[in-house]
Design a protein around this nucleic acid. Structure first.
Lengths: 248, 248
DNA sequence: CGGGGGTTTGAGTCCGTTCAAAATACGTGG
DNA sequence: CCACGTATTTTGAACGGACTCAAACCCCCG
């Protein structure tokens, strides 16, 4: 297993004390000494696009903390192809749910870009958790956020049409993958394929394709390969909240 | 607010040491001394059907532990009517997500039967959590379970047709609300109205009505008011896993 | 008996799917 | 650098499941 991965990942070093993710992730409550323990226990690896961080069915050996890059988490049915559930970015912590249930992974995490991810072995996590109760509280808050995200996505998929869900996805993508262009528009560089994007908003690729054409026809955004130009942000926001009148 | 509830809820006493829910819920890791603290801090109340445990927007004052009865958790949009998200039974802990995020409630919990529910004030929870790290681990495992449930429900609603979702719901309801009848069939007494059941499986009441007729026509179950008779359990299970061949 | 909510039934519509084929983008080797 | 093979994306046409709207029905309770 480790052999298979060797060609797509390599070990590197990193320092939690200066890692940008340490502030974003739950580790901010740790004392300098505890951060030292974390730093020593963790294993930092470099992954190439397409590398699999972990697969469904694999034993859960610890927590993952994304130092950089974008990963896609799929819910796979017995190792086969499954549904793409969510994107994971810098500072996010992966695998906690399986870890705290002492179960094998039920998801698969695949790198969409080259990525640097730290693995914190189970024992180290447990040690820190027992040593510093504040860390546990932080993790609980994190868990609550994940649950909230899942529940909201559930509601959105039940009640919102595909077009609105795409608008929602674009608005979200904008945060981590968008930047202002020369013309003042926002330009998003999608970290995932169109097929995966379709899966994320729970539609078939054919449907996504059609909805994209609709948005283009209505002057909301322009799509070209993995580049999306938001030509009218107000209109995009209107797509998300049809009830609201846009204040000029 | 408290005045409004007075006619539907009354204070009782209970002892965590002998409460059946203490074993089911996270509290099983507590020492006798800690259990004493919990016992003293908690407030036990008696609710009548229809009573609202908490409403969306209300400040989160602690955790709820269901000693007996069945509650329905709705995700309400700004205090109005929302979607029914899940049923909560004896031993379940409510409100942890809002509690650990330090936010106002985003859900509403309504009693479906008369119920006995203990409220554990924030300060007591926090005290126990900081005092006994094992409790935090237990809560994290609980959180992971909740996330798993939400994610699975998400997938089911995306991929499964209404009929299969109803079968799933019946199979689940069977655990807490079903019992064997004289004829050997399983009889479920639904704790919720048909409208709420429809909402739980994310369909309109009209659709639920039609799917019920289908199941009856196919000899899977018989519906009469709030009583459901599973006439053929194997066939019900086939509805849930169409791929599996039923072994006689 | 007369509401009034919940439930059922019917007819029609719509959104997203399915199936099938064409077009485009991509990686690889010549 | 181009040609080729493969995978992804797009387009089209037809289908289908669940929804909407509207009316009848039912049951519980006053």
């Amino acid at each position: 297993m480790a052999d298979e991965l060797r060609h797509v990942c390599s070990t590197t070093t990193a320092n939690c004390a200066v890692c940008r993710s340490a502030g974003v992730a739950a580790w901010c409550v740790l004392s300098p000494a505890e951060l030292g323990v974390l730093n020593q226990a963790k294993v930092t690896r470099n992954y190439e696009p397409g590398a699999v961080l972990y697969d469904a069915g694999a034993p859960c050996k610890g927590l993952f903390c994304v130092s950089s890059g974008t990963l896609l988490v799929e819910r796979s049915a017995q190792g086969g192809e499954g549904r793409r559930v969510r994107l994971v970015e810098q500072g996010d912590i992966l695998g906690w749910a399986d870890f705290f249930r002492n179960m094998a992974h039920r998801h698969r995490a695949v790198c969409q870009t080259s990525a640097i991810v730290c693995t914190i072995p189970s024992q180290a996590v447990r040690g820190l958790l027992l040593h510093n109760p504040l860390l546990a509280l932080k993790f609980l808050s994190l868990a609550a956020q994940d649950l909230e995200r899942s529940e909201r996505s559930d509601l959105e998929q039940t009640y919102f049409p595909a077009r609105r869900r795409l608008a929602l996805a674009l608005a979200s993508l904008k945060n981590n993958h968008g930047e202002g262009s020369a013309s003042g528009d926002i330009v998003i560089t999608l970290p995932i394929s169109r097929r995966d994007l379709a899966d994320l908003i729970a539609v078939r690729p054919e449907t996504l394709s059609r909805v994209i054409r609709e948005l283009e026809a209505d002057g909301v955004a322009t799509f070209s390969g993995r580049t999306v130009q938001i030509t009218d942000l107000d209109r995009l926001l209107d797509e998300i909240e049809p009830g609201e009148a846009s204040a000029a």
